[in-house]
Design a protein around this nucleic acid. Structure first.
Lengths: 219, 219
DNA sequence: TTTTGTGAAACGCTTCACAGCG
DNA sequence: CGCTGTGAAGCGTTTCACAAAA
């Protein structure tokens, strides 16, 4: 057996932020960063950054900092970003269509390669050059495109049902935009994005006169 | 001085979930819920639910559970949902337009009452019956509509600048859809929704073969 | 009996502080 | 010196377990 370090969830979230920031630094031609510099760009302490990066063993150089290209490659690999991901989108309502048009996903090598909807009015339509398929086509297309990720942009009522369909079709990770907890097996991962919850958290903070910011994204 | 209990942030997030669930139960005509029932609907333990609700003092009845109408009213009040919120949307790109068309915000008494964009092509257009204003109109409209919440749906490059404009106009809470940390004063609250971060977290979990779900929303 | 409210224990993450390397 | 990696301390949250109320 191996020593599996088991990265804490808060750390994983920050790793994504590090990757983003390091990508910018790389593009700017920088050679190295210290934990302190990287941290202050993201509102974190140097110690926090070092602890996070130390999960992968000796990665930085005392007195120097972290070599940007090396760190960048390492983070990409750890986060599974050293490859392209195909995703299936279900639901071409307001949110679904916005995601189809959203440039950043493609930029980051997440490709929506199949689109589904249950409405007869939607099926057969095209959005951004991608045809909308009926749910029946899901198993075949998911297999064909080797899709591992499903993006759920359907109403709350049908979220669980559609999640079940996606899983049955072979998807192992679901990005859920519906304001509903999904019940999935132990082998499936779910990350949720809940606009209304986010707004509500904000309203609480404002009405409580609370200070300070409160970043998040999914949990 | 008063005993201010200071509710932990993880608890606040769950309070929103309780409110949602209790709303459904109320609509279904149920009279009471136990902490265990409420918890299992949301994937939480009874103890967790009780601890959360105990912040407001004796609210449930041993042997019975929690009275739904009372709990509902209480949660609404605590979360600042016993009133209507006006919000300003900035940015009518893909995400901004999806939010304008998103029914649920209005359903939950969050009203987008002013819409802004910096592009000359967008200004003057109408979306869902709401005219797009230039940034110059922001201070006047924010004051006029008594807007406290700003929704930031602009590119990452301009997010900080627009946030500054919103704050100067009088907004005290910002819902940020840009993949950027916002630097704001201590008196302003920020909640972020970051699609790409969410997708990336999911990709990590899937590629790590990790099990289990991972709900979130903003952090 | 059922179910709450709550101290106490357990857990996980962050912060501190410093030895050691370049 | 500057900066990393890390044990140890500190802090906040969750889980446990049980006395008390209906």
């Amino acid at each position: 057996m191996e020593a599996k370090p088991k990265i804490p969830r808060p750390t994983v979230k920050r790793l994504s932020l590090y990757l983003r920031e390091v990508g910018l630094l790389a593009a700017a031609g920088r050679r190295t960063v210290s934990s302190k510099q990287l941290g202050s760009a993201l509102g974190l302490t140097g110690a926090q950054v070092r602890k996070d990066l130390a999960f992968f063993g000796q990665l930085g150089h005392p007195g120097i900092g972290y070599e940007i290209t090396r760190l960048h490659a390492h983070l990409r690999q750890v986060l599974g970003r050293d490859r392209t991901w195909n995703a299936a989108l279900v639901g071409v309502g307001n949110i679904g269509r916005a995601l189809l048009a959203y440039q950043r996903f493609a930029q980051e090598d997440f490709h929506i390669t199949a689109v589904f909807d249950s409405s007869d009015r939607a099926i057969g339509q095209e959005y951004g050059g991608r045809a909308v398929h009926g749910m029946d086509d899901m198993p075949a297309l998911v297999r064909q495109h080797e899709i591992k990720l499903g993006i759920l942009a359907v109403p709350a009522d049908s979220a669980q049902h559609v999640a079940d369909l996606l899983i049955e079709a072979g998807v192992t990770g679901i990005l859920n935009f519906a304001p509903r907890r999904l019940d999935v097996g132990d082998t499936i991962s779910v990350t949720s994005v809940d606009f209304t919850l986010a707004l509500e958290q904000l309203a609480f903070q404002v009405s409580a006169g609370l200070t300070g910011s409160f970043v998040d994204t999914n949990d």
